[in-house]
Simulated scan of single mutants.
Amino acid sequence: MWAKNFARIVFCLYRASSGALFHRRSYQVNTGFECALVGAASFDAGHFSHERFGTTVAVDGGYASLRKAGFAADFALGDFDSLGYVPLDVPIERHPSMKDDSDTALALDWARLRGYSSVAVYGALGGRLDHTHATIAALAGAAHAGMRVAAVGEGNVLAVLSPSCCDVLELPALPSGTFSVFSLSDEAAGVTEVGAKYAAEGVALRSDVTLGLSNEFVGRPVRIELASGMLAVYLPALPLSSMRFGRR
């Protein structure tokens, strides 16, 4: 989709001969995530096993997913309607089934109130489309509150950029594959992509356009920047530890 919009927005195909991939910038860089939330949807246990988290929270049916894969939860939270019973071997926070927030949103709020600044969410993408949409909304709310958040599905990762938490994302060099960016606010301004097949500089993306669909990795590191608004970045199933989040 990027390639079809040259007439509307100036894009250029990045060439290695044009100079360094990344200009020198001064910003704080963070890697890794302090806390993992595991929900009841499809759980990528292989991806989870290669990450290191200080705390793992089972969100309702995520308790069963963790146990089945041989992992232990440090805490469990939710109304436990998906699980069908209340865990007895970990501390819990039980919520009524009639409530105004999803279990994932409640778990993100639980993490924020306990001082976690970076949270990875597993088992909350895929399955029911409305549940996935609710997860994306919950991630946006957490990012707006200043948390660095990402969600891992089967074969994909979703990261959220916002000036409230992090407005730069650096990705490793991949020989192939695609990534997409979409606005989670009315407009995401100053979107810049460097190192991918199609480079963007200071582009404004509205929430009702598909311009950010399917840019490509071409064997170079990629950097994505955001000036204002909020941006969803859809990626292949990269290790979270390979992603560098920055704040200018």
Rank of each mutant, 00 (worst) to 15 (best):
S65K: 14
S65D: 12
L113M: 12
V86P: 14
R94A: 11
A72N: 15
R112A: 07
A58R: 08
Y85N: 02
E93C: 05
V86F: 14
D74E: 06
A58Y: 11
D103A: 00
F80R: 02
E93F: 06
T104A: 08
G115T: 07
E93V: 03
D100A: 13
L88N: 12
L113C: 13
D109H: 14
A58C: 10
K99G: 00
V86L: 15
R67L: 07
Y63V: 04
V90S: 03
D60F: 08
P91N: 07
S102H: 07
R114E: 00
L88S: 15
M98A: 12
A72I: 13
V59E: 01
D74R: 03
D109N: 14
S102A: 04
V86Y: 15
A76K: 06
A107N: 06
M98Y: 12
E51R: 11
D109P: 14
F53V: 00
D100Y: 11
V59Y: 04
D109G: 10
E93T: 04
D79S: 02
V86R: 15
A111C: 07
G62Y: 10
E51F: 13
F71L: 00
A69W: 07
P91T: 08
S65V: 11
L108D: 03
K68Q: 14
R114I: 01
F75A: 00
E51V: 12
R94S: 08
G54Y: 11
R112F: 09
G115Y: 10
H95Q: 09
L83P: 01
Y63G: 05
S65L: 12
K68P: 09
G78N: 09
F53N: 01
L88W: 12
S97C: 10
V90N: 04
G115A: 09
A107D: 02
L77T: 05
F75K: 01
D100P: 13
M98L: 12
L66E: 10
A76P: 08
G78M: 09
G61T: 05
G84H: 08
D74T: 05
F71R: 01
M98G: 13
G54W: 12
T56I: 14
A105I: 10
L106F: 05
D60H: 08
D74L: 03
F80G: 02
D100V: 11
D109V: 14
Y85P: 04
A69E: 03
G62I: 09
Y85E: 04
T55F: 15
V59C: 03
V86N: 11
A72W: 15
D103I: 02
A69H: 04
G54D: 15
E51S: 13
D100N: 15
K68W: 11
L113G: 14
R114W: 04
G115F: 10
E93S: 04
L88V: 13
T104G: 10
G78I: 09
K99D: 00
R94G: 05
G62H: 09
A72L: 13
F80W: 02
V59Q: 00
S65R: 15
V90I: 09
A64W: 10
Y85H: 07
F53Y: 07
D89V: 04
G84L: 07
Y85R: 08
G62F: 11
F80Q: 02
D89G: 03
A76Y: 08
E93Q: 07
S65P: 13
A58T: 08
F71I: 01
S102T: 13
D89E: 06
L83Q: 00
